[in-house]
């Protein structure tokens, strides 16, 4: 064991310690987290619905309205990230502000701002995709694979 007296081997100790750690490890307040994720996530989507309804009222189809709707939400998320509010929201709302498209925008704006000090090319330009990059990569690959399957079997 760590307090090494040769009684236990390293692996045994690690196994024993992991079990001991699990006993005292604090659990996240799941009910509270889920409540705030539901409320904040729901409200962001409701705001999306309000914006979408407005664009539809301007004569756009539901499909055409999707792009401008996400653009407005992304703009708002970028603004509130810049003002230093979005990270405070995220601390409370968790997935409620991460999972909506506004969270995706936050994941682009936050590193872009943070790494401005390393310049506009290797800082802002490169780091802004540190989280959004994987999302776009695996989203597109999924779309291409499903597209290939659809094209082959249609």
């Amino acid at each position: 064991m760590s307090v090494s007296d040769g009684r236990q081997g390293q692996e045994e100790f690690q196994k024993w310690y992991q079990a001991r750690f699990n006993q005292v490890k604090p659990k996240p307040p799941i009910l509270k987290n889920v409540f705030w994720a539901f409320v904040v996530g729901g409200l962001i989507c409701t705001l999306g619905q309000v914006i979408q309804t407005y664009f539809i009222s301007l004569g756009l189809s539901q499909k055409e309205a999707a792009g401008p709707t996400s653009a407005v939400l992304i703009f708002l998320a970028a603004l509130f990230t810049g003002l230093g509010v979005y990270d405070e929201l995220g601390r409370k709302a968790g997935a409620g502000s991460i999972v909506p498209i506004t969270g995706f925008a936050n994941s682009i704006v936050a590193p872009a701002m943070e790494y401005k000090r390393e310049g506009y090319v290797f800082g802002v330009g490169a780091k802004m995709f540190v989280i959004a990059g994987p999302v776009i990569v695996y989203g597109l690959v999924t779309a291409v694979l499903i597209g290939l399957a659809y094209w082959s079997f249609r």
Binding site: I30, A37, G41, G42, C45, A95, I98
Partner: peptide
């Protein structure tokens, strides 16, 4: 929109 959006976020939170 509130309910469906909220529920999707809840799944994310549980994960």
């Amino acid at each position: 929109a509130f309910v469906i959006g909220g529920l999707i976020c809840v799944i994310g939170q549980l994960l």
